[in-house]
Write a protein that binds this DNA or RNA. Structure first.
Lengths: 312, 312
DNA sequence: CATGTTGCTGCCGTTTCGGCAACGGCTATA
DNA sequence: TATAGCCGTTGCCGAAACGGCAGCAACATG
């Protein structure tokens, strides 16, 4: 099912690999063939598509425009293929997800497991990275669905849903704070805390609040892994900060306690966005998973709001 | 700039013309070439794309799926072309509009004239037809922007905006009703009326109301042209019904009077929708006109609401 | 200076494409 | 019922496009 000109595919491969010879290796063709197709494309467009550096190729402005078009074509071709396949009852394909770490503890594994239980032929690729990298993966067409902190997103992405979760302190069962219902930042800073490094969005949520306090915070542990911070908290090393999404299992076991943060009477929100390339129609099997993801996150948001009503 | 496989274009032409030989004439190639490309496509997809009738070809289900993909590709190619062209400052292209008759009197000619004044290189194609035909034109990719009565629209279209206008009676200056501020349907039916035929949406707006009345309406003139009905009303032949959009010029001349309909104390709304194919990004020059169209219709809606506040 | 990598270009065999003419199937018309 | 006019398809053949191979100059790295 390759009814698109080879030039399209070659261009796409060159853009991804950043080099003609590398693209040729991936495509299993001679590099001369790839080179010629690119030259032919540039001749037809009437403008160079790549800047030739000694170390490889970089897209020009026109090249980026063509890349956008080619991505639209290839992604829509994927959707067409899945549409045809689903006619004969074969629901198969790969859902590619890029997301931040908060989801890896329970949300994503639960969802994927349950989805695979129903649709065995659908496979998954997941990549965990920072929020801005998630958005970039989507823009570059390397992922189908992205979950990231809801910052400003580029116009070529569409925010499918926005869910807000309370940021809270996470402490071991035996921690002096564990009996409280909510905590303030000051109360936490009286104990050793496990701080997020700037690459985690939690840092940017808490830093402005910490800056407002008069006291200098206790010397603390710093980390860039939510998983690690959670495990440290479980071992009683200190107070960690994150949303309830990441401590589902351990809090059910009773090892960890989640205490919603109370900042001068109002909650501290962590906004989670679900993103998709705007200029694109998802294949049926991808869209199906997306719907479940949105529903599940909505459900968790609702449950959390019920458990910790945003009192003032 | 033809970097897409000929099969794509041939398929598109065959779908539009409904025949291989007709497509070949349009494409200036031998019919055998077209036939072969179609056969090759069907072989690659693994399923027939057309049903061969004696009189030509009809799309199969898989064929319609491919048609959707091909339309997405070709329309996005158009956008890419315009993006590249706008880099060199050349804003040129053709905006294709399908709309219902209500817009032809002032909205559309005003907008097109003013837009052409600013962007000389942008040309227009407009086709006036019934609401359902407008939507179909859009779905088939024969128009870029559609304006129709806001009924239920197929899922492959996106409603960019929804504007509501009051339906009213239109009478000549000398008509006995002309002095009133508003009129009820009963008051109108006391005079000869110019009725819309079922092909016009006005018919479907008024028919349910007329059916509720006890009296049998006066024998009346029936027509399927808003233009004709307006001119008949201007000549004092009877009372016509339409929105204020269509009588801009003649009411400014004082020849015609617009009287908002009052149906048991509430207005009768005529909902106008602006539509675009959902799976598509418009070229810059088309989007620019679309924005103006939405703004202008919003402006008229606002002005009309100010002139005839929806009293109860 | 040697080595490795990059993109590009003749040369040439293979594949694909398109034009021409002819065939069988069908419809409408005389 | 015969005929003329469509229709899509197929064999044949020249032309164009494609891809592989080997070699080129330019540049970076050690």
């Amino acid at each position: 099912m390759r009814f698109h000109s080879p030039a399209i595919q070659y261009f796409h491969a060159v853009r991804r690999t950043g080099s003609i010879r590398a693209a040729a290796r991936v495509l299993n063709v001679a590099s001369s063939a790839v080179s010629r197709q690119i030259l032919k494309l540039e001749q037809e467009v009437g403008s160079p598509l790549f800047e030739r550096n000694a170390r490889g190729l970089t897209l020009t402005t026109v090249g980026e425009m063509l890349a956008r078009h080619v991505m639209n074509v290839l992604q829509d071709l994927d959707r067409f293929r899945s549409d045809v396949a689903s006619l004969s009852g074969a629901w198969s394909g790969t859902v590619s997800i890029a997301c931040i770490e908060s989801l890896t503890e329970s949300v994503l594994p639960d969802l994927i497991a349950s989805h695979r239980g129903r649709a065995r032929r659908v496979s998954f690729t997941t990549e965990v990275k920072g929020s801005s990298d998630v958005l970039e993966s989507l823009s570059r067409g390397e992922a189908d669905i992205g979950i990231a902190m809801a910052l400003r997103h580029p116009p070529d992405l569409r925010q499918v849903a926005l869910k807000r979760f309370r940021l809270g302190a996470v402490v071991a069962r035996e921690h002096p704070l564990a009996r409280r219902k909510t905590v303030t930042l000051e109360q936490c800073l009286a104990f050793p805390v496990i701080n997020a490094l700037p690459e985690l969005s939690i840092y940017h949520l808490l830093q402005p609040l910490i800056a407002q306090l008069s006291e200098t915070p206790e010397p603390a542990i710093q980390a860039n892994s939510i998983d690690l911070m959670r495990e440290l908290a479980a071992r009683g090393v200190g107070v960690a900060f994150q949303t309830q999404l990441g401590i589902n299992r351990l809090s059910r076991d009773g090892q960890l306690v989640f205490l919603p943060l109370d900042n001068a009477g109002s909650p501290v929100w962590s906004d989670l966005g679900i993103y998709v390339r705007a200029e694109r129609t998802l294949p049926a099997y991808t869209d199906s998973f997306l719907q479940e993801l949105v529903r599940e996150l909505g459900e968790r948001e609702r449950r959390e709001n019920a458990a910790y009503p945003p009192t003032s």
